[in-house]
Amino acid sequence: MSQVPEDLKYTQNHEWVRLEADGSVTVGITDHAQESIGDLVFVEAPEPGTSVQAQEACAVVESVKAASDVYAPISGEVTEGNEALADSPEAVNSDPYGEGWIMRIQPADAGELDGLMDAAAYQQLVADEG
C-alpha cells in the first residue's frame, strides 16, 4: 500500500500539496504516482517566476519507461523548483513527500486549496482506479 500522509492535500492528477507557514505551497507527486511511473531518471522543474494556471502542465518527470507531466494544483507563481532533482531524480522514488518535492508556488488565491482532495478522498480515488 502506498503512503498518503493525512496533513496534505491532493489532486486528481496525483500531485500532493503542502501549505507552508509563509503562505506558499510545496508540490510533488504522490507515493502512488511514483510507484506507477517507476524508476525516475529525469525531472524538469519549472523556473522561478513562472506563472502557472491550475491544471496547467508545468513540470515533467520521466521514468525509464515514459515521460509524465506534472500539473500545477492551483494558479500562482512558481517561487522555486527543486534543483537537486537534476542530479538525483531518484529522490522522488525514495522520498516523494520530502526530498522529492518538485516545486513551490505562491498561490494567486489561497481559496483554491479548498477545492483539493483530503487524504481520505485521495485514498478513495487510488482505490477506485484499482
Binding site: 531518471v41 529525469f42 524538469e44 520521466e62 515514459a66 515521460a67 537534476a86 531524480p89
Partner: peptide
C-alpha cells in the same frame, strides 16, 4: 549519445 539528462524518446 544525447547531451544532458532528458531522455530522447
Amino acid at each position: 549519445v544525447v547531451e544532458g539528462r532528458a531522455p530522447a524518446r
